[in-house]
Design a protein around this nucleic acid. Structure first.
Lengths: 246, 246
DNA sequence: ATTGCATCTGACGTAACGGTAGATTCTATA
DNA sequence: TATAGAATCTACCGTTACGTCAGATGCAAT
């Protein structure tokens, strides 16, 4: 017979955890003294090994209780199910890591990035699928496809260029620069989308005059004033307007 | 200006979550009416996009608050750290999935497995490293190495055989079988470890007579009575005793 | 004015314990 | 055997990021 402290040392669990299992009825001590002290024996070891094992396999305590009560038969089935759950989790994490990689890569290549711009780029990476669905609802499928075919290939470079340009334009708003530089920046900004796609895009947008891109799904790197300033500058310099999306 | 419900729809968050962020000071509405109703505007959208982004990257709300407050500089560093954390998580999950695979494979090949035996096998898979450390503390390194070299190669087959034999021996305890069968079972059980290693093991164990294997780290598939019965039967049949470990 | 929906505050519940307080009990030594 | 110190007890609060009520109030439209 072990006191709770000895049992804890033996099993590597904490005293608190053992008491918790005892309360929950998951692992009842073999004997409880009049003073309320819990005592454990080797039979308890067997049970707690099962508990530890299943916990390691990422079962919740409730599921463990289920399995220990009546799960003799379904254990292997359950393990296969559990494996699928874990694979889902892993794939999810993998996706996030992938995005992080892209984001880090984009961030590394630029120096002095505005956090707002940077986070909006990551947001775009994350919401890519949703954005695509949304665009397919309001633009011709074929155009969306061409757009994404292009970005899929150049996602890192495009985003990096996008960030740098947005950054410089933001600075130009604070500290005016020469018109030639500004013109160049704006033109580069608009030409992030290749010429042919851009032209078709402008065509379509003219047709449906009232299209408003969801500000939630397509965050702008600029605040209101910056955006208005940009448009006015573009008009002043005689450039064709329109705010792009990706 | 959006009411909380409209804002929730726009952002895909729940009303409750928005109120929660408001309470925590993570995202304060731009305006609160006398009646206490919260109203949001486009500036709030920008903030919440950051929050959603960082949440997706598996930051806690506390960390997000930190980052939003003063994290302009350290964002990229933080992302790299975050990536490492996620990789740790993923590797951990991968390990568990690997063990599950082994366990499922072992379980598939046997029919009618006793749950207790099966779980103890998985437990052994999980605690392999700890067991090895422990053994290296009490046995000659060279012997441990040979033992594990053997098991690493045959882990699935060895465990499967181990399970089947334990199963049959347990049944023999309940329903006695012919001596020849029993003798064969016990011999097979002892010969799970190859002859040469077993002999050296016996040698060493004779030297240190008082070695007791930790019952926690090395669970036996048998209960006390079964074990005593087994030893008595082995002696009766003139077989060399000793309970093996892996 | 009424109806019905939206929103409010405040409270409790979740999972699996960790931490602490104050009271009791066990164990070892003098 | 007395007593000091360690171990254990119960009971309660805290954690995370909200979900889910209840009961009260507000808002918009008929």
């Amino acid at each position: 017979m072990y006191s709770i402290g000895q049992f804890a040392k033996k099993t590597g669990l904490t005293v608190r955890a053992l008491r918790f299992y005892s309360e929950k009825g998951l692992l009842e001590p073999c004997f409880i003294s009049d003073a309320g002290h819990r005592y454990y024996n080797d039979a308890n070891i067997e049970i707690i090994q099962k508990i530890v094992t299943l916990k390691y396999l990422d079962y919740s305590l409730a599921e463990i209780e289920e399995l220990l009560r009546n799960g003799e038969q379904q254990l292997i089935e359950s393990l296969m199910f559990q494996k699928k759950q874990l694979e889902k989790k892993r794939n999810q994490i993998d996706r996030v890591i992938g995005r992080l990689d892209q984001a880090i890569e984009i961030g590394k290549r630029s120096e002095s990035i505005d956090t707002t711009i940077f986070l909006s780029v990551i947001f775009n990476l994350l919401k890519e699928d949703e954005q695509r669905d949304y665009l397919q609802g309001i633009l011709p499928d074929e155009l969306v496809e061409r757009l994404y075919d292009f970005f899929d290939l150049n996602i890192i470079e495009a985003n990096q260029k996008y960030m740098d340009l947005a950054n410089q334009l933001k600075q130009a708003y604070i500290q005016p620069i020469q018109d030639e530089y500004l013109e160049s920046l704006i033109e580069q900004f608009f030409s992030l989308v290749p010429q042919d796609i851009a032209e078709d895009l402008v065509e379509v947008l003219k047709e449906y005059e009232d299209i408003q891109f969801d500000e939630w799904l397509f965050p702008s790197p600029f605040i209101k004033e910056e955006e208005e300033w940009l448009i006015s500058q573009a008009e002043r310099l005689g450039l064709h307007g329109g705010v792009d999306d990706e």
